[in-house]
Nucleic acid binder design. Structure first.
Lengths: 179, 179
DNA sequence: TGTTCACCGTTCGTCCCGTACTATACGACT
DNA sequence: AGTCGTATAGTACGGGACGAACGGTGAACA
């Protein structure tokens, strides 16, 4: 089945995991939605990934593709046993690549930008995310089959809170140094 | 001078900023060192960037290149006025692209991996980083011309501490759910 | 029946990134 | 002096990741 062997990246497994959580079957659009509302906070990917990666995975036999005939000829992908197995194996391995944070606002501060506006904007942004998550969480809380999403959202919430704390202490430190 | 116009990315500015902090002149290797000991925590880049990006920037007129003749024909780059100006302009703009965290351990937990070992390993990793930074900080504290590095290290320290807190609360939550 | 707008899907070029590799310097040991 | 081991310095390259830009689809409303 692996007509075209490929290298599986973290993103590949992220996609496989989302299929798994969707019951093994989904369209790229479903995937895109799931991406935005669950893993964006610890594994961000651009939306094109939701279209490109399943195609890659299907070529290698980890998914099957079935094209619908309707107007928007959607493609429905489904996990194969190979896909499920690859995912399980990867998740069972307790090693993981080093975490990475990319924070342009902090980079700008480092580069000499005025910390005040930069950090304030960023803090506001995180606050907005928290609010957004509150709504998502309300929609998802207790719903059958949404436990994965819910947990992901709680992780996200914690992440944004910690970032706010970090940025605030950074802002305070900078301000102290100014004076 | 911009014989070959290029798009400046966050990484481009990171490199320019490091040149600036090095007094405007440095070799790729100097850059690589600076990369590892300062911005890795909020703007990680692979070491090849320290060789590739200056070449790109030089082609577009933001740096000048001067090749040494010695055994390791090092290339010494220096900021041009255009480079300095581009950096200043970028840093002065208070907007910044959304921050991104990539955390494979959390992704694995999301995908069904056993949280215990995954989170424990990650927490230990962050603790190691904290220790490492303690040493760096001792070496740099109060040294003339190292204020940039020092601040970057303090940001890094805060980041790792917050991540430890986040992962610990996540681990606690998961454990509670298990029981 | 047209216009508008939100939704859905894809293409493409460039940047990024990790792996693997080469080369130079230098001290240690014999 | 030779050669070995290791840290230091630099490069090549293939393919994944990214984002801008665009094109199609369908329902609402006039």
């Amino acid at each position: 089945m692996k007509s075209n062997p490929i290298r599986l990246t973290g993103t590949s497994y992220a996609v496989l995991a989302l299929f798994d959580q969707c019951g093994g079957e989904a369209t790229s659009y479903d995937l895109k939605q799931a991406l935005d509302s669950s893993i964006q906070n610890f594994w961000p990917v651009p939306h094109t990934t939701a279209y490109e990666e399943p195609a890659r995975l299907a070529k290698a036999g980890y998914l099957t593709a079935r094209q619908e005939e309707g107007g928007r000829r959607k493609r429905v992908y489904a996990l194969t046993e190979a896909g499920r197995e690859a995912l399980r194996e990867w998740a069972a391995d307790p090693s993981a690549s080093a975490p990475q944070l990319k924070e342009e606002a902090v980079l700008k501060v480092f580069a000499g930008g005025d910390p005040g506006p930069l950090l304030a904007a960023r803090i506001a942004w995180h606050r907005g995310k928290l609010e957004e998550f509150g709504e998502y969480l309300d929609a998802v809380r207790g719903v059958e089959g949404m436990e994965g999403q819910e947990r992901a959202l709680r992780v996200g919430t914690g992440y944004h809170q910690k970032m706010i704390e970090l940025l605030e202490s950074l802002a305070a430190e900078v301000e102290r140094a100014e004076v």
